Simulated assay, not measured.
Amino acid sequence: MNGRDPDRRKALLDAADRAILREGPHVSMAAIAAEAGITKPILYRHFGDKSGLYQALADRHVRRVIAQLRPEFVRTRTDPRGRARAAVEVYLDLISANQNLYRFLFHRASAEDTGVRSHMTALVRGLGEELGAVLAAEQVVPDAVRAQILGHAFVGMVQTTGDWWLEHPEVGREQVVEGLVEVIVAAFISNTVG
């Protein structure tokens, strides 16, 4: 954005959010610009190009998800089941409440732009690394390498299962939560006794 007004940038991202939520993941850039009361070239000028807008939206929303998940990672150390349940529920609630935005970021933007795909992958990978570090630091998984493997596995599993669940509304949220929690807790148990 190079020296542009941060309040204006926020207003443009807010307009993009409204357009995506209203029109869905296939919203046009023209619709986003119209929602902001500007033209597409002006919209692109604020973000460099379409990729810059996608990355700004990804930063905004993926970092919000991470900020809401982070407290669940460090929640009561003595209750791995409760911790896993809380984190899974937070994630599923966030994506189900913002399905158009989720699909825009993880499907459309990532498919259209390799830079966005790499950026999203790096953000998700960072979450896996953070979870692995917590598991190792708290001795939930005593071996640091195994903790990293499990941290990434849990993040990937929850993300892809959540993606699947959005396409299968006939499956109850509680059933998805329980299935994920059972796998996570089983992994914790096998890594503390094995």
Rank of each mutant, 00 (worst) to 15 (best):
D113P: 04
A153M: 04
V155Q: 04
F154S: 10
T161Q: 04
V177I: 11
A34S: 12
S118Y: 00
A87W: 11
R146I: 01
A67Q: 12
H119A: 06
A34W: 07
F104R: 05
D14I: 10
R103I: 03
T192N: 04
H46P: 02
R4D: 08
W164P: 01
K50Y: 05
A147H: 04
Y102P: 04
R81H: 15
T114N: 05
E130N: 00
R117G: 00
Q99I: 11
A147G: 03
N98K: 07
R45F: 13
R146S: 05
V27N: 14
D59L: 13
V177A: 08
A15R: 07
A19G: 09
V90S: 09
H107F: 07
R75A: 15
I42V: 13
V65K: 12
T76E: 14
N191V: 01
V62C: 14
H46T: 02
A187S: 08
V155R: 04
M120G: 03
D113S: 07
E89D: 15
G132Q: 03
T114S: 06
L180T: 05
A97Q: 08
A11Q: 13
Y54R: 14
P142V: 03
V140I: 03
M157T: 07
A58I: 04
L135Y: 01
V145L: 07
N191M: 06
V183K: 05
D93E: 11
N191S: 05
A137E: 03
R83A: 15
H168R: 05
R45D: 14
F104P: 03
A136H: 06
H168F: 05
A84T: 08
D113N: 04
Q139H: 02
I184C: 09
A97K: 11
L166D: 02
H152T: 01
V134T: 01
K40G: 06
M1H: 11
I66T: 12
Q68W: 10
R45T: 05
I38G: 12
G151A: 05
A16Y: 13
E112T: 02
G162H: 03
E174Q: 08
M1N: 11
V116H: 07
H152A: 06
F47M: 10
R103H: 08
A111L: 01
G156R: 00
A67N: 14
A186L: 04
D17I: 06
R146H: 04
H46K: 05
S118A: 06
R45M: 10
A19T: 08
P142Q: 03
R64M: 14
V193T: 10
